[in-house]
Design a protein around this nucleic acid. Structure first.
Lengths: 186, 186
DNA sequence: CAAACCATGTAAGCTGTTACATGATTTC
DNA sequence: GAAATCATGTAACAGCTTACATGGTTTG
């Protein structure tokens, strides 16, 4: 469950509440989880049970009570150990490809419309990623290297979208050419 | 559960057993599931319950008994309806980025080694994708459009790997330059 | 005074993986 | 005769999402 290490990483930057973590995850291009309560609050309890974080309950005079979590030395070590583990290859889950795979049941116009809709989704996604990158609010910037890597990763997210848009555009134009050729031949 | 439609799609091509489907999924770059029994056999039972497929139990004189599944008219319609639904944007789950995000705890050499290992994983992945594409055994090729699209999708899988490799290479060289600069300045 | 936000948590359910269980047949 | 393949299925569990439940505070 690498979400635990995502949380641990955020806490290595500064002490946070569950709610803070939720917000940071929602707004992050890199920490790709949805930021739902269930996972976050459960993970925090587990981290606490494992002694990787400690918590302080605060009861301000005004406002709701909150638990602030802080990483422990044991947590810092666990994080470093995990960071050094052999990385996994990325997972590209392109559900649309499953759809496109069976587009044999469609006519040319329907296929084109499907490709267009995919491009629209990607364009939305791209705008979303760019916005996240430009806001860039409330994220670690402890040193030059960290700033550099976070920027590079955000750029990667943006370029991945662009790459996919270019791909779908090329498929559309090539498909159009094929259709024309087929029409003139018959 | 889009795996049901992945299965339905395969059955729209030809009648298959659960075991056939398992093998096809394992070897496919597009149908990204692991091809585990649990999901496939359960999905087939559900599809049967919904009347989207029919099954015939065969008991050959030699060899194990097998159930061959065939798509029904209702199944064909359900597939086409699903293919025409609004596509989702792809999910890029790059677990490595979570690791790299907290590489602030590492020194420069450790960071470099981490990036190198990621590149190795990607290189393996690329070879795997290429091999899948070259074998290209036992997949639908009902018409020119279908062949074209399947090729384009396989190329996309390969190019996505290449894109990621290029990214990690550029990060490595830029990071090396920064380290040198920092070293000469101090 | 309604909507949005702060803040914590729980319940139910879907998706997906690894591993287990069984048994026949084919290949080396 | 051991290992791989064909063929079906189940059990246990990890991961993730939506929605529910509660209640105070701030903003428009």
């Amino acid at each position: 469950m690498s979400i635990k290490y995502a949380i641990l990483g955020l806490l290595s930057w500064k002490s946070l509440t569950g709610y803070d973590i939720k917000k940071l995850m929602e707004d992050s291009a890199i920490l790709y989880w949805s930021g739902n309560n269930n996972q976050i609050y459960k993970s925090l309890l587990q981290l606490l049970g494992d002694g990787l974080v400690s918590s302080i309950l605060e009861q301000p005079k005004s406002g709701p009570s909150k638990k602030t979590y802080t990483i422990t030395d044991k947590g810092q070590n666990a994080l470093k150990d995990w960071v050094l583990t052999v990385p996994e290859a990325p997972e590209f889950k392109k559900a649309f490809f499953v759809q496109l795979a069976w587009s044999g049941v469609l006519n040319d116009e329907e296929t084109m419309q499907l490709l267009c809709k995919y491009e629209e989704e990607l364009t939305l996604q791209l705008a979303y990623q760019k916005e996240k990158h430009e806001r860039r609010k409330g994220y670690p910037d402890r040193n030059e290297k960290e700033i550099f890597l976070w920027n590079k990763m955000a750029e990667n997210a943006i370029s991945s979208c662009k790459f996919e848009i270019d791909w779908v555009k090329s498929v559309r134009t090539e498909l159009l050419e094929q259709t024309k050729k087929g029409a003139t031949q018959t």
